[in-house]
């Protein structure tokens, strides 16, 4: 037991890092649900493609043998590329896979099935173009193993700090955008009452597209961070990460932005506790048990608005 307790702080730090990334991906699910009441099941694939885009930047720089590769500029470049690419992909998905359905008054099931189709399509597109074998992130070139320090006996790598800081910064940025800007108010207005939003002059289609861009860009950034952390990516990685992030979004209360952040953090921490106290093999079991328990005990999630949910039904 003493052994287990000694590694607990270390595991909690890992859990925190993973949790912020889950939160980052969960935001996309929750924003799209908030605005269209649909679960974008292709969101995990957008995350995966973000990871590939970041990997592409890193590989390009390595192949070009550019001297002086340093995490301080390479990582932002990878994130930028992944966010732009993933964001645009999200906008395309909405435009071509979902809008034709919901604009013609399809039931909520239509876009959902289209999303599952898009997910399968994107997985196979990446497998066919990039190969089925995993790709390796050369993380150690950017973050040498020696880059770590000890705080209260816990060894923390610079990479973990960068992950937490980057994810936290993006979440803060999104929160400020949604709460304080005209665009953010328009997003909230469309989420609350789409027709009334149009009546005060909101260009609803554009706001929906922007929402997809933002959510997808965050997932793309999450892909790069996860790639750097696990150092391996493959075309199927979006499936489980997507399910985890979906769990985080439901845990926090789907449709609620702060809920997605909180749900992600909690899920990351719960997983790391499961790894420490139960068995690493049960990590996913615990995560999905959390999903089931949440749905049974508190279907609206931790921060979900019970009355708002009731109105929607």
């Amino acid at each position: 037991m003493a052994d287990i307790l000694s590694i607990l702080p270390q595991q909690l730090v890992f859990g925190l890092a993973l949790g912020t990334v889950y939160g980052l991906i969960a935001l996309g699910y929750t924003m799209v649900y908030g605005i269209l009441f649909m679960i974008n099941f292709a969101h995990g694939e957008i995350f995966m493609i973000g990871a590939y885009l970041g990997w592409g930047v890193l590989t390009f720089l390595l192949n070009a043998q550019i001297a002086g590769l340093h995490a301080a500029w390479v990582v932002p470049l990878m994130l930028l590329q992944a966010m732009l690419g993933a964001g645009l992909l999200g906008v395309c998905l909405e435009r071509f896979a979902y809008r034709p359905l919901y604009a013609r008054g399809a039931t909520r099931l239509g876009p959902l099935i289209s999303a599952i189709g898009a997910s399968i399509f994107l997985q196979n597109a990446v497998m066919l173009t990039q190969g089925a074998r995993m790709k390796v992130y050369m993380t150690s070139l950017l973050f040498p193993r020696a880059w770590r320090f000890e705080i209260l006996g816990v060894s923390i790598s610079v990479l973990v700090i960068v992950m937490i800081a980057a994810a936290a910064l993006m979440m803060w940025g999104l929160h400020e955008l949604v709460q304080r800007t005209t665009l953010g108010r328009s997003i909230r207005a469309v989420a609350e009452d789409r027709e009334m939003a149009a009546v005060v002059g909101v260009n609803v289609r554009r706001v929906i597209a922007v929402t997809f861009f933002l959510g997808s860009a965050l997932a793309g950034a999450g892909g790069v961070l996860v790639g750097l952390y696990y150092t391996q990516i493959d075309f199927f990685m979006g499936y489980s990460a997507g399910l985890k992030a979906f769990t985080a979004a439901v845990l926090g209360g789907i449709g609620n932005i702060r809920g997605a952040m909180l749900g992600g953090l909690l899920l990351g921490l719960i997983e790391s506790l499961a790894v420490t106290f139960i068995n690493p093999a049960y990590k996913d079991v615990v995560a999905f048990a959390v999903l089931i328990v949440t749905l049974v005990v508190r279907p609206t999630g931790l921060l979900g608005d019970v009355s708002a949910q009731a109105e929607k039904v």
Partner: peptide
């Protein structure tokens, strides 16, 4: 009415002025 219930009074008024960007 259909005001935006999850926005403050001030924010609702700002939404009203959206066309005056």
């Amino acid at each position: 009415r259909r005001i935006f219930g999850r926005m403050t009074v001030w924010e609702n008024l700002q939404m009203g002025a959206l066309t005056r960007r």
